[in-house]
Amino acid sequence: MGSELKQNSNKLQLNPNWANLQKSLTSHGGPKPSKPSTDQSEIPTGILGKRKERSDSKLGDNPLTPVSDDFSLTDAVAMDCEMVGVGQGNRSALGRVTLVNKWGNVIFDEFVRPIERVVDFRTQISGIRPRDLRKAKDFCFAQKRVAELIKGRILVGHALRNDLKALLLSHRKEDIRDTSEYPPFQREGHRSALRHLAASFLNVEIQSGEHCPVEDARAAMLLYEKNRKDWEKLAKDQIRLKLKQKKRKPRKKTKQRDGLHADDATTAA
């Protein structure tokens, strides 16, 4: 009996301590969390931040990736077209046309059904397949839409003469920025292919297989934007030179006319 009483007394002595511990915990608002748990809200943020940095770095590896979500129509637009073969296959017709704004975001991208029958899709280069033209836009629709988008704007591209010819459109020479004709991009006066310019000046590979007009238009636009200040200065200088030449030509003609009148007068005398 004595041993049992001692055991019961020990149990009675422990119960108040346990009650006091519970009381102290409740009075302090519960047990204090450990240090790692206090930063629990910060840990996911840090992890997400690292993931975001990784994704940005991956996107940053390709300079052709747009850096803005702005899809508005900017003062400068870049265009690239892909052609298909018509007639005997040796004549080119528009098969796809793409326009991007100065940020590289697509503002127009449509497959185009040529007026003539396509005999060569040139898929290895154009990337166009028969299924792409089954529900393609009519040529007139694409032509009209492109004309509206480029009107009054700086038009950027590579060998734009071919693209405008395929669209049966014209554009003010003063507003054309052709990467194939920009002197700093030429080697010993010879034009370079767009893929060579992209590799040399942008450190990016394009046109390794089927051409992507979106990628090509972005490359042309980025080449322009990186050299925009000097390019625009050169364009202004060329315009001034042309104006001077136009002013000089009439003077020469008037002098020649004055000389002819003088000769006529002497002969008449």
Rank of each mutant, 00 (worst) to 15 (best):
L169A: 10
Q13F: 13
W231A: 00
Q40Y: 09
V119F: 07
Y224E: 00
N101F: 08
E225H: 10
S55I: 13
V67I: 08
R228D: 02
P213C: 05
D80H: 05
K249A: 15
R129N: 05
R172S: 15
N20L: 15
A78I: 05
L160M: 07
E215M: 13
K137A: 12
L164E: 03
M221I: 10
R257H: 10
D70F: 04
L149F: 03
A19R: 15
T26F: 02
T266Y: 11
K255A: 14
E110C: 03
K137E: 12
S27P: 00
Q40D: 13
R129S: 11
V106M: 01
T123F: 01
H211D: 02
G189A: 05
K11V: 07
L194W: 01
P16L: 11
T98D: 04
T65I: 15
N101S: 08
R117G: 04
K252G: 05
K233N: 09
V97A: 01
N227K: 08
D263G: 00
K244L: 15
Q40F: 12
Q88M: 09
G60I: 00
R145N: 12
L99Y: 01
P44T: 13
Q238P: 02
A217M: 09
S72G: 14
S55R: 15
G46D: 09
T267W: 08
S9V: 12
D138E: 13
